[in-house]
């Protein structure tokens, strides 16, 4: 019991997750800066930002609904932290594993998006409302390819449990190569979920200031930013677990290092994508997802179905 609590709160749970998330934000910003020929922030910048925000006063707009306005960031943060404990990191098993955990994780990862919407909508500021509506509109564009992409390997493994998917990879070591399209689809969809350029439409600075986050300040803003950072780690870990099954049997230390490399590689890819594209318009983003990403995901599903029907059996 006490050990479980340690797992959840300290390692690899909340504390480790927060520290790693902040460090990953630093890594992302550093890479982003270096790609743009800048110096970038010092290593403690995200942490310092977090501490600074936490120390500041929370302002709730008078016209806002205080309950939803305050609850949204907290629920969002809780949801992403909860999702993390179901993801296996360096071995095939997570802290708490059961059949169907992959579905639970996907739903837990949807909650922050909805919280951003609710927080933005109940801020009642015009920028926030436009941002909130854009958040949800965008959700309909990326959520389906994300589900299709992530569930394709599950189809192959014939299980809704991540542990069993990873077990399947141990039995069939080269099958990850067949899921590369799914990896690409999931990366694009996750990028949209994290609202990073070119999909940063809901918080497009030059149009709607900070979108749904415009009215947030102090601790609540710190939570929102932390949510996005942790969501990035959770999403990257999930992708690493499902699509990059390397170093699973090499013991905790090496396995852990391999895990870090995998997550940072995904973060690095995100930084590059952030650097080389211009922000899309919301209509372009939806058209892009439905015209290119969803068909790609379908191709992946088709490949897996064929694999399952012909080769495995």
């Amino acid at each position: 019991m006490l050990l479980d609590l340690f797992y959840i709160l300290v390692f690899p749970g909340f504390l480790f997750l927060s520290a790693f998330a902040l460090w990953a934000e630093y890594f992302d910003r550093l890479v982003y800066a270096r790609l743009q020929n800048r110096v970038g922030p010092p290593w403690f910048q995200p942490t310092a930002d977090f501490i600074k925000l936490v120390a500041k006063a929370d302002l709730v707009p008078t016209a806002a609904n205080p309950t939803f306005f305050r609850l949204a960031p907290i629920i969002a943060l809780t949801a992403v932290c909860t999702a993390f404990i179901y993801i296996p990191l360096w071995s095939t098993s997570s802290l708490f594993s059961f059949n169907g955990d992959i579905i639970v994780i996907l739903y837990l990862l949807t909650i922050p998006t909805l919280c951003f919407f609710i927080g933005g909508w109940y801020s009642t500021s015009l920028y926030c409302r436009i941002g909130a509506v854009r958040t949800v509109t965008q959700l309909f564009a990326y959520e389906i390819p994300l589900f299709m992409g992530l569930l394709a390997p599950a189809l192959l493994a014939n299980s809704w449990s991540i542990t069993e998917i990873m077990q399947f990879y141990i039995d069939h070591p080269w099958f990850w190569a067949f899921n590369l399209i799914g990896l690409i689809v999931s990366l694009i969809a996750l990028h949209g979920k994290l609202e990073k350029a070119p999909f940063d439409i809901p918080e497009a600075e030059t149009e709607i200031v900070a979108g749904g986050f415009t009215e947030y300040s102090g601790r609540l803003l710190a939570f929102l930013r932390m949510t996005l950072d942790i969501e990035m780690i959770v999403g990257a870990s999930l992708l690493a677990a499902i699509f990059l099954p390397f170093g699973l049997q090499s013991g905790p230390v090496v396995g852990f290092l391999v895990y870090l490399v995998k997550v940072l590689l995904i973060v690095f890819l995100f930084s590059i994508a952030r650097t080389i594209f211009a922000r899309m318009r919301i209509d372009q983003m939806i058209a892009f997802c439905w015209q290119y990403v969803v068909p790609l995901a379908m191709v992946q599903l088709l490949i897996n179905l064929i694999l399952k029907g012909i080769i495995i059996r």
Binding site: N37, I276, F277, R279
Partner: peptide, 16 residues
């Protein structure tokens, strides 16, 4: 212009 369309890399390069 780069910044307005969310393309900060262009902003950084051209201002450099």
């Amino acid at each position: 212009a780069g910044h307005e369309i969310g393309f900060d890399t262009l902003l950084m390069y051209s201002w450099r």
